[in-house]
Structures are given as structure tokens and as C-alpha cells.
Design a protein around this nucleic acid. Sequence first.
DNA 1: ATTAGCTCGTAATAAAGTTACAACACTCTT
DNA 2: AAGAGTGTTGTAACTTTATTACGAGCTAAT
Lengths: 276, 276
Amino acid sequence: MLAKIKSARDALRKSEQKVADVILADPDGSVQSSIQSIATKASVSEPTVIRFCRALDCVGFQQFKLRLAQDLASRGTFFYRDVTTDDTSKELATKLIDGAIASMVQMRNQLNYESLEHAINFFENCDRIEFYGSGGSGIVAEDAQLKFFRLGKPAIAYADPHIQHASAALLDNKSLIVAISHSGRSKDILETVKIAKQSRAKVITVTATKSPLAEIGDVNFSVDVDEDSDIFSPVKSRLAQMIVLDILAVGIAVKGGEEMLQQLARARRAIDFKFV
Amino acid sequence: MLAKIKSARDALRKSEQKVADVILADPDGSVQSSIQSIATKASVSEPTVIRFCRALDCVGFQQFKLRLAQDLASRGTFFYRDVTTDDTSKELATKLIDGAIASMVQMRNQLNYESLEHAINFFENCDRIEFYGSGGSGIVAEDAQLKFFRLGKPAIAYADPHIQHASAALLDNKSLIVAISHSGRSKDILETVKIAKQSRAKVITVTATKSPLAEIGDVNFSVDVDEDSDIFSPVKSRLAQMIVLDILAVGIAVKGGEEMLQQLARARRAIDFKFV
DNA sequence: ATTAGCTCGTAATAAAGTTACAACACTCTT
DNA sequence: AAGAGTGTTGTAACTTTATTACGAGCTAAT
């Protein structure tokens, strides 16, 4: 949630940003405050605070506070510390794994189940599904393809923006696309999604809250991860994205009932001869 | 907090016990309810609910809810249960995420730090690095390539067994390969590694303990994950493999000191223009 | 049986959260 | 540069939620 606020901050309105700043400055204090006291601290009106909460996908202030509280609580269990140059390899490994766990816990608390239901519906009503992502997110897209093509509908992943554009132009209203992006601000993927929408395809996004990409999709799964600490391409958000897509795939499979589960088992056995 | 309620239950007044029962029966639901709905469910009056909260050392209902919420969020037992066909989407998501967390925790406990030191050494003494994996592990190999090629040495990933064989044949004793496999029993990857060893390349494996692949490598990172529950391609081991390689990459970067960290920052900035 | 003491609910009150709307500010035209 | 139109923010009314005060009902001891 804190990560969510951070990543959404710039997309917020001016006075809502003041609210964000007040909360980021003292999250622990904020969970115990009323709307009034937060509004005063931020020198804005109370409705602004509510609008701020709504902007973060909460139905109201109470829900916001609750989520924030849960976020803070789970943060404590796997305390995340930055890697430093004089860590032993053990410290380093522990830190990185704890960071990954912390982001999973946050994921668990913030995942939007309505989006999940919607997304499952989209899948059931589509003829084919395409995954778009570039760079690190391209990896996630490929991973998703591997999962989804076993579900009985054509599934494909494209990492190359040119091919994405070309493919998006050929979609129709029975197509479903999943656009994956860490920042949600990559020009390429935004362009791809615009083309896909013109083709009247349904669009699921897996990206940061309030990012341009999240705004133009039909359904968004928010993946907000505190990234300052990632030296490389963002691993933690990679992991989070992958688990979101796994949840979606399993959700679809489970809804498909016994029949689909058996189909999956068949797909699995098909590669058995490859092993010693 | 839940434990507190349980142990305090018998000491409470009769109607307060009803409140306790309602909350214990559905803690997750309760944190989102108002006093009114809880009072109704327990067939008691609203003040009784408040008295119940006071009995548990809370100043009011809000504080009680907050504490309960934090308690639920941090209950650290990521007890893994199998997904069933009649899970709600929330249960499903929670189960899958808990499973992923559990495998991370396991990873943290079993990671071999000596292997890590060895692997870092290999990297420092090599001219180039190649990642081999097929199917799901091919994804991990690509992800690793993305990370490693920023470290200043040629890095490449191959998923196609034929190309792996060809490439492995062209290695020399200044080459390092990383073989990734979930089972460690895939004929293709075993063959690839044998060829690479004939070329006198160093071999790091990321695979299951005691598997044939683990046996023939120079250094192995054990990734053993309980997979019965994975309907699809094994997500959990995918995540575990990725984090292992991330640890390795960060370990190398950190050992490279300030200079290498700055080089990484440059690599990151190089793609900035791609964004809105 | 009566009263002290405790438990619990009703009804009033206060506080917090939410909505509707109007005023203001900021573009983008013309 | 004026004005239409859009978007942002605050005011004030309103609703919901939490809390308090008080008294009725029950239990048990005299």
C-alpha cells in the first residue's frame, strides 16, 4: 500500500498529493487518525482525503486505513533492509529473499478480487489471448503464454513492439490482451494497447496503480512494489507479476472444472519422455 | 489478538461471548464490518460490542478493528493448502501466494552460501556466461540473461536444445554456463552439460538436490519445491530459481564495488527515453 | 420478598465519514 | 485577451457509525 501510494503519487491531483505526503511522512500515525486530522495536517478539505482514498481503489477512508494498517503490520514481519556493499553473502541472500517475501505479502493484501472475477469472465468469452510486455515484462509475458496455452485457447506472447503493434491491429472484439509493464509508462506498450482498443479487444493490464497504462485498460491488476532497492531490472515486481498471472490462470482452470484439470494433466504427461 | 480473544472468551459476560464467537468465526469479515452488523450477527446490542472491545483493552471499536486487522495481516504461518475447485477467488489467491511465500522461506533456509561464494568466483574468472534451460526454465534463463549482461561480460540464454548443444561445443575453459532445470532429469539439458564439460567450461546448476543434473555440475544451487499442488508449469520453482539467480547477480554486482553499481545505474538510465 | 449489584438494551448524542453542489482555476479556443 | 469548457477543490448538508447515559431486568443474598 505504501508502495502503491508512492507510485500513484505523481498521477494524483495537487491537493491529493499533499495528503499522500502527510501519510507517507507518518504512516503509523495516520492509521490512527481520523479524516479530520489528516485533512488538517495536509491543509486540505475532508472530501479531498476521501477522493485520495478512492484514487487508490478503496471504497472509503475506513478501508484505506485498514489496508494501510495491514500493510504496516506485514512490513514488520519481514523487515526489508537495503543491500550494502559490505554484506556477507548470507546477509545479502537473506535480504533479497525477505524483500521478495515482503512484496508477496503485500500482494496478498492488495489483490483486487473483483478484477480477478472480471478477468476470468473476459477469458471465458474470448477466442484468443495475447500477452504483451517488453524487457523484463517480456519474460513475464512468455511465462504467461506457457501457462495459458494449456487452457485450450490460442495464447501468444510478443516482446517486440513492432510485432505487438502489428498483431494488435489484427485483433477483434473476441480477443483478449494482457499488457504487462512495470512502470505502466512505456510508450511502446501504451501505443500497443491503444491499437488493440481500436480493434475492440478487451484489455487486462498488470502494472502500477494510476499509471497511464492502468487507466486505459478494462481491468487492472495493481502491482506496486517498492523498488528503490532493486539494483537490476525489478525482480520483485517480476515475481509479483508472475504470481498474479498464475492466480489468474489457476482461477480459470479451477472454474473450468474437472474436465479442464484433466486436460492440464494430459499436457503435462506429454513431455514425460523428455526425462531420464 | 485472535489468541487473546480465545483465551479471554470464558472470562467474558454471556452476550460478549456471543460477540467473540462471531468474530472468531469470521475474522476477515469482521474487520470490514461496522459495529451494527456485528451486533446484529451476534444478536446483541451495539454497546455490548463496545464493551467487548473494552474488555480486550481497546479504547474503542475502531482500535479493536485496527489491531485485529494487523494481527490478521501478520499472522506469519503461511500454511500451505491445496487449491480446490470450490475455492472462492480470494481463497485461491491467498493459497497460491502463501505457497509461493512458503517456498521462498524454504529457499532462505536451505540456500548454500558456499555455493554462492564459489559461483561468484567462477563469474569473476570467466570471459562469458551462457544460460541454458528449456520450457519453463527457459524463461528463467532469459531473465538471468537480462540481469547478467549488464555486468559487463557477454551473457546469452538458449532455450532450444539443438542450439544449446552447438553453443556448448564452442565453449572453452574461460566460459561459465548456468544450467537451469526444475527436475534436473531432462535428457536435453544433461546432454548439453556433458558437451559443455568436454569443452572444459565451468558449470553452475540450478536444480533439484541429488538430481542427475546436480551431480554433474561444479556447483549446484538446490531448488526443491513441493510441486504436487502446482496445476501448471511449476510457478513456485520458477520463482525460487529466479530469486537464486538474482542473489547471484546482486552478489557479483556488490563485490564489483561502487564502480559496477554506477555502471548499472547507467544501464538503467539508457532506457529512460522509452517512457512517457 | 426486598434490595444490592451486575448485565444488558434503549434511546439520545456526538463524531466521523460521505455526498451534492457551487465556486474557483486552469486550459484551449476564437 | 475574453470566454467556453473542463477539471479541481472546498462548503455545507447529510448519513452513517460509534459512543454515552440511563434505566430495566435479572440474580442472589439477606
